[in-house]
Nucleic acid binder design. Structure first.
Lengths: 262, 262
DNA sequence: TGACACAAATGAAGATATTCGAAATATTAA
DNA sequence: TTAATATTTCGAATATCTTCATTTGTGTCA
């Protein structure tokens, strides 16, 4: 077993090498780097997370990958995480649905899980309004769902339609409940997203919905983001997972929001 | 039998490969992926399920499909009948496209072939307006296409969105060319369809398009149908296949329509 | 067409091996 | 010495596998 190809490097030096390696090979593993540089795996992990925040690479389990260039923005590694939680959240969210209701499903991986849960529900007839093409695809073969797509211009990062056309189409509709996906929730501020054009659309959704249910895994719970979708007073319920930290949950409850942990 | 083409990948890496495979091939099977990556089928199912909520693909029994394949009714035997002709028609129709243009793509299997042809074109930027979800899905990963969906209520038979919402959204748009699918063409009457709600929408499309190009394989050429979409005078071009009977073709040409046989 | 049976595919549960992150400890450079 | 850096340790999280009961799809037969 050959060990330690390069040793005795300064931390900074090592990080540059790692960065170069990722760029060349597209992938690196924690184990391989540790033995190559003769350090512990903990050290490598530290390097990788530094390089990740510097935007050089994406962390994954067991290693790191090159940033997916161009086309594949839809395959953001972050989106793929916390899958089990999202499934549970989706089921809990779908359990609220009663026959005859009209729902809005926002775009996002968690709301897609709601759509998947709806497929398994035994419903006679509901109306679903969604601007997400993948959500539409999931509900395509569910006869009980009357599917309404407000339309708009495609945003490829989220597979969804937005823009003024979407907003004006929405303004003529009404819904019993909105399921809103969030990229950040702060109990003091509200629900946030990194995508500005969709923030507008979400605001319109909130206006036409009687009840607003936010779905988000716990990792979103204390994270802030650029554009505000909704203030805390506009929300009615949050469905998140059991690993949610207690403080924000308590604060949200104090402000009158029903928080469900699943 | 070649086994295990790629092994020892990180989980996220494997998911990216699967995503790429689905995009290229349109379909993948659980078994094939499992042996290719040297994992159990359970793992692959997990991957597919994650990728489904990310909107990359749609799960089916035994594997997964690209969004557009799922939406395509072309699995119907009757649609496959004139497949080769439709492909040729689609290519000829796409060949008309110039960079910077704005097009409308109607729903239907022939127009879906136009979308497939567009994927292979080397364009810098075009605008595509479509109400067909399968057409939209086909153009999802084509960065050169600015995709606009007018919205509406889903009609499952054609995978398309129609209704008043669609018509009013369309009324604010303009297009250089409309590609209209037809279920029946009569040189005396015009273009017909069996679907009433879509006839309304098609009329609106014609209103906002500078040029109207009808695409239809020869079997539609003397067939009549219930509702009239467009009178002959409203059309500019017909693209059909070489097996078209000469009489209707001649009659259409006499009436000033350019007919292309491919 | 509909009912029935068979095979394939699925998802849930339990077990196992990796990997991770945090904290306390050790080492190194200036 | 001091601050930065790296190490070990260990409980928690993740990824994967096997098994098994259930569901789903595909014939076949009437």
């Amino acid at each position: 077993m050959m060990a330690a190809a390069e040793q005795g490097l300064l931390a900074e030096e090592r990080r540059r090498r790692i960065s170069a390696l990722v760029r060349e090979q597209g992938r690196v593993t924690v184990g391989a780097l540790a033995s190559r540089f003769g350090t512990s795996q903990v050290t490598i992990r530290g390097d990788l997370s530094v390089l990740e925040s510097a935007g050089v690479l994406v962390r994954t389990h067991g290693g790191a990958l090159r940033l997916s260039e161009e086309l594949d923005q839809s395959l953001d590694v972050k989106q793929l995480q916390h899958h089990a939680e999202k499934v549970r959240i989706g089921q809990a969210a779908a359990a609220l649905i009663r026959d005859g209701e009209t729902l809005i499903l926002d775009s996002g991986t968690t709301t897609a899980e709601i759509a998947r849960a709806i497929r398994k529900l035994d419903l006679k007839s509901i109306n679903v309004i969604t601007n997400a093409l993948n959500v539409a695809a999931l509900l395509l073969d569910v006869p009980a769902v009357r599917l309404i797509v407000p339309g708009g211009i495609l945003r490829r990062e989220s597979n969804s339609l937005s823009g003024p056309m979407a907003e004006s189409a929405l303004s003529n509709l009404q819904a019993d409940r909105l399921y809103l996906g969030a990229d950040g929730i702060d109990p003091e501020v509200g629900v946030m997203t990194p995508h500005l054009p969709e923030a507008e659309l979400n605001a319109q959704m909130i206006r036409i919905a009687r009840q607003v249910v936010v779905v988000a895994d716990a990792s979103k719970l204390q994270r802030r983001n650029v554009s505000l979708i909704a203030r805390v007073e506009q929300l009615h319920m949050l469905i998140t997972d059991l690993s949610a930290p207690p403080e924000p949950v308590e604060e949200l409850r104090r402000r009158g929001i029903e928080v469900r942990l699943v």
